[in-house]
């Protein structure tokens, strides 16, 4: 019964994930309600003649939306939050796996020594 519940819940999560992926692929690309295509259309508002024209766009939009001075941290933790979530949970998974493997490794070596 417990195994059936686990399998059922995993299948439900998988179906929900597939539906969410399909639904999000039909949406427009937005951030805070503004379409990205409109941001790109208004590029005459920006001073493109200066040497750092593209950097002007990035820094100004980023300061207006996130108020974080470091644009890279804003990208990592705000625009690409899911990526950071996966990245930091990789570390958690790696530590869990190494704990499991190394603990059984130590136990196995002790057992072998005891037999000899």
């Amino acid at each position: 019964m417990k195994r059936f519940a686990i399998a059922f819940s995993l299948v439900v999560f998988l179906l929900m994930g597939c539906y969410a992926m399909y639904y999000s692929s039909t949406l427009d690309r937005t951030y805070s309600g503004t379409k990205l295509s409109e941001v790109l259309k208004n590029e005459q508002n920006y001073d493109m003649n200066k040497p750092d024209g593209v950097a002007n766009i990035i820094v100004r939009e980023n300061l207006k939306r996130t108020k974080s001075v470091n644009a890279v941290t804003a990208v990592v933790f705000d625009y690409r939050g899911y990526d950071t979530l996966g990245e930091s949970f990789i570390l958690l998974t790696a530590i869990a796996g190494s704990v499991v493997i190394l603990k059984s490794h130590k136990k196995g070596s002790d057992h072998d020594e005891g037999q000899e």
Binding site: S32, T66, K67, S68, V69, A74, F77, D78, G81
Partner: peptide, 22 residues
């Protein structure tokens, strides 16, 4: 999910600013 809220705390450039990013 992962949107930046509480952006009104602190001024831009302070140690305590930038909302949930910090």
């Amino acid at each position: 999910f992962f949107a930046n809220v509480f952006t009104n705390i602190g001024d831009v450039g302070d140690l305590i600013s930038a909302g949930t990013i910090m």
